[in-house]
Design a protein around this nucleic acid. Sequence first.
DNA 1: ACGCCTGTGCGTGCCTATCTTCTGATAGG
Length: 586
Amino acid sequence: MIVDARAHGRRVRRAAVENVDVARIFDEVADLLEIEGANPFRVRAYRAAARTMDTLGAPARDLAARADGLETLPGIGADLAGKIRTILETGDLPLRRQLTRRTPAGLVEMMRIPGLGPKRAKLLYRKLGVRTIAQLEKAASAGRLRTLPGFKQALEAKIVQGLREYHARQGRVRLSDADAYAAPLVEHLRSTPGLSRIDVAGSYRRRRDTVGDLDILAAASRPRLVADRFLTYPGVARVEAHGTTRCAVVLASGLHVDLRIVPAVSYGAALLYFTGSKAHNIAIRALGVKRRLKVNEYGVFRGTRRIGGRREEEVCGAVGLPCIPPELREDRGEVDAAREGRLPHLVELADIRGDLHVHTTDTDGRSTLADMVEACRARGYAYVAITDHTKAVRVAGGLTAAGFRRQFREIDRLQARTPGLTILKGAEVDILDDGTLDLDAGTLAALDVVVVAVHSKFAMSQAAMTRRIVTALQHPCVHILAHPTGRLIGRREPYALDMTAVLRAARDHGVLVEINAQPDRLDLDDVHARMAVDAGVRLVVSTDAHSVDELAFLRHGVDQARRAWCRAADVANTRSTAALGRLLKT
DNA sequence: ACGCCTGTGCGTGCCTATCTTCTGATAGG
């Protein structure tokens, strides 16, 4: 019996380490090595490995189960494969612990402040003893930063501003990261005896681009069993509360998770309540009050009699509403729309018929053109646009006109043997400072799909940046504006932009605007995407995939399109190849 | 640290604009 329990515990412990955990540790090691001034190529190896783990389609432990399985991954040799196995088995890495003995891990966090890289972080630590964000703030407000060599008032001010932004986004994680933690935890709970329903509610279910915590809701005949299984989950670092209907824990990653257990008769009401948003709940309850009903997390009540609560539809029905998709529950007009029967039929993942923004090894992608084409064919797409970078984006190894001509010939060859899939010749053309495009007129005219985007000089004034992008949209060859605000969730704020002016220009010139489905971009965001649709602009949902695995990011983009009230008709890449061709200007 | 390679090892994103700065650090995918 004891032996079984141990074996079981070990198996579960291993299962609790996700690819993102390996990636997180490798990234931290890379940062620490960089602060120490280690061989830059060694640093890069860890970063590349982190990225590989982050975007791997399958669990790393499946590969680790086979001899030499991990070593087949690009950039993973014997050493890193061994370290991955160590992390999968123990949840940590001796090298990481050893590095943090010399260099406090707080310095890694400090490097997330814009203006602070490895050198300055090390200097702050050596000269001022600053080893945490809190100490950095104290030093900054005391004006001590400017006493350091190379630090002047301007840099101090930039760091103070960076600290403000850092705090503003604190405590929220990207939805895709939340997904990585939620899915195995839910699987762990699902097998509990007596459990009939389980959902992750909250902003996770509404598919917000970031979530503050996870709210898990379960219906079970024996709540104690669910709670026990939750509290003993191997990923739990700290238990904050443990009652019979509510438990709260913090995972090793710092993510807070709440579990609520309700009887099945209340499940729908509880799911509605815990999905929120708060403003949406208030609107629903106000409708109930008008009908002399009380709506709470246990059900809908007339007096003391429960008239519904087992399913969400019962609760909504009682107050005269159809069920509203969770993505719309932000109190942005969805309650009125539902009452008047004009809820949109939202776009779905299955509606998307092709990807209009992907990279290959010809620039900074990690899959070859042939592999990308084959992966898109295997996904059943009608079309894909190959959109590698142009020369100004040097870090990405952007192509010159000659490079594109070479790529065109290969596309022609691949097209000849891939009859079901239309391969569109494209480029992600850099928008230069003055709004001109980083590609000659002849090559631009030869492209089927011209995607344009900003990759440099993010600090321009709002007026200058708006002028820059609007100028680019006026170019007759341009079809799509990619990642319009340049934001990176949790890392970089969007640049200053008059979005209304940009969307007006897009509409006037027939330019499609992208929802970039990279989990840390999701750009346009939900609010801007809805603005776009309301302004008469057509959207595209594209992955910006840099590997065949990243083609699966599509669902993150569709999530945001749904939050923006998009119907299939609002999204250009739900169209057939012929219809898409008509939407792309000639 | 990897990958290619056979040298008891070598080259690798590896460059460039900009600002935080005045020689160096950061940022860009």
